[in-house]
C-alpha cells in the first residue's frame, strides 16, 4: 500500500470518529465497560490465586528425625532445605522445644509429663512449601536423608488446595473467553451500526473501483483507536479503584484477627498487577476493536 493511501486511511478513520461523535462515544463507553469488567475480573482472579497459594503454604510439612541424629546430619538437612527453591521457609524444633509445645498443649494435665524424658522426642523440621503441587516430590527426597524417620504432610489438604487452584485457573480462563466473545460481539454490533449508516458510501466506493482493503482499513483503524481509548480508560478506572480498596483494606488496617485470611497477607500490591491488567486490556481493546470492525465491514463490502 502506498504511503498516500495509508495517510488517506488514517485521515478517513479520524473523520469517521469526528463525524459520528455519538456513535464513537457509545463505542468507547461499551469497550470501557467491558474492559473494566475484564480488568476487575483479572484483578480478583489474581488475588484469589494468591490467597489459595498463601493458604497452601500454611500447613507445613513436618519432617521428623531420629532423636539421636548427629549434628552433621542436621546440617545436611538444613543445607538441603535452604537450597531447595520450593522451600519457602523452615524452622527446626529441638526435642526440648517439642516437649514444651507438648506440655502446653496438655493444659492442666501437663503435670503428667513431669517425669517424661524429652530426649526421646524427635527433632522436627517445619517446612513451608512454595508450591503444594511439588509436595510429594519434596517428601520423597527428604525421606532419603539419613536420620529422617517420618514425614508428616496434610496430604488431603494439599490435594484439595491443588484442586482449588486448578479450578480457579480453569474458571479464570472460561470467564475470560466468555467476556472476550461478548465484547467482540458488542463491538461488532456498534461498528455494524456505524457501517450501516455508511453502507451507501461503501456501495458507491465499490462502484468507483475501491478495493476491499481500501474500504476496510479506515474502519479497522477506527475500531483500533476506539479499543485503545477504551482500554486506557478502563485501565485507569481499575487502577484507581484498586488503589482505593488496597489502602482501605491493607494499609489502613491496624490489627486483625483473621489470621492468614487478613487482606494484608494475600492482597497483591498494585505494583505487582498493574502492568498485567493494563497490558491485557490494551491487547484486548485493540483486538476486539480491530476484529469487530473487520467482521462488520465484511458484510457490506460484497458488491
Amino acid at each position: 500500500m502506498k504511503l498516500r493511501k495509508i495517510l488517506t486511511a488514517i485521515r478517513d478513520s479520524l473523520l469517521n470518529i469526528v463525524r459520528h461523535p455519538l456513535l464513537t462515544l457509545a463505542s468507547v463507553t461499551t469497550v470501557t465497560l467491558m474492559l473494566l469488567l475484564m480488568g476487575v475480573f483479572i484483578v480478583v482472579s489474581l488475588n484469589a490465586g494468591n490467597l489459595v497459594k498463601v493458604v497452601a503454604q500454611q500447613p507445613p510439612v513436618e519432617v521428623w528425625c531420629d532423636a539421636t541424629m548427629t549434628e552433621q546430619q542436621q546440617e545436611d538437612i538444613a543445607a538441603y532445605l535452604a537450597a531447595d527453591s520450593n522451600v519457602l521457609s523452615f524452622t527446626m524444633l529441638t526435642p526440648e522445644e517439642n516437649f514444651e509445645q507438648l506440655k502446653q498443649s496438655m493444659g492442666q494435665d501437663q503435670s503428667a509429663l513431669d517425669n517424661f524424658d524429652y530426649a526421646k522426642l524427635p527433632y522436627v523440621y517445619q517446612v513451608k512449601l512454595q508450591d503444594p503441587d511439588l509436595a510429594e516430590a519434596f517428601v520423597a527426597q527428604i525421606k532419603a536423608f539419613p536420620g529422617v524417620t517420618q514425614v508428616d504432610m496434610a496430604e488431603s489438604v494439599m490435594q484439595k488446595l491443588t484442586k482449588i487452584i486448578n479450578w480457579v485457573n480453569a474458571g479464570t480462563l472460561l470467564a475470560f473467553i466468555i467476556l472476550l466473545v461478548i465484547s467482540l460481539f458488542i463491538i461488532a454490533n456498534m461498528v455494524r451500526l456505524s457501517v450501516f449508516s455508511r453502507a451507501e458510501e461503501i456501495n458507491i466506493m465499490k462502484y468507483v473501483g475501491a478495493t476491499n482493503a481500501y474500504i476496510r482499513w479506515p474502519y479497522i483503524l477506527e475500531g483500533t483507536l476506539i479499543g485503545t481509548v477504551g482500554a486506557l480508560l478502563s485501565s485507569g478506572l481499575v487502577y484507581g479503584i484498586y488503589q482505593w480498596l488496597y489502602q482501605r483494606l491493607v494499609t489502613g488496617q491496624s490489627s486483625s484477627d483473621l489470621g492468614v485470611l487478613a487482606p494484608r497477607n494475600f492482597v497483591l500490591p498494585l505494583s505487582q498487577l498493574a502492568w498485567i491488567f493494563i497490558l491485557v486490556n490494551l491487547g484486548l481493546g485493540v483486538l476486539i476493536g480491530a476484529a469487530g470492525s473487520a467482521m462488520s465491514v465484511r458484510k457490506y463490502i460484497k458488491v
Binding site: 458510501e201 462502484y207 468507483v208 473501483g209
Partner: peptide, 30 residues
C-alpha cells in the same frame, strides 16, 4: 475493472457529507 467503467446512476449516489469537489475527488483518491 470497475475503474475502467464510469457508472452513472438514476439516484445520483453522491455522498451527502462530502462536497461536490470531494465527491469527485474521492474516486481518484481510491
Amino acid at each position: 475493472l470497475r475503474r475502467s467503467i464510469g457508472m452513472v446512476f438514476q439516484d445520483f449516489r453522491l455522498i451527502p457529507t462530502k462536497t461536490v469537489y470531494e465527491n469527485v475527488a474521492f474516486a481518484m483518491e481510491i
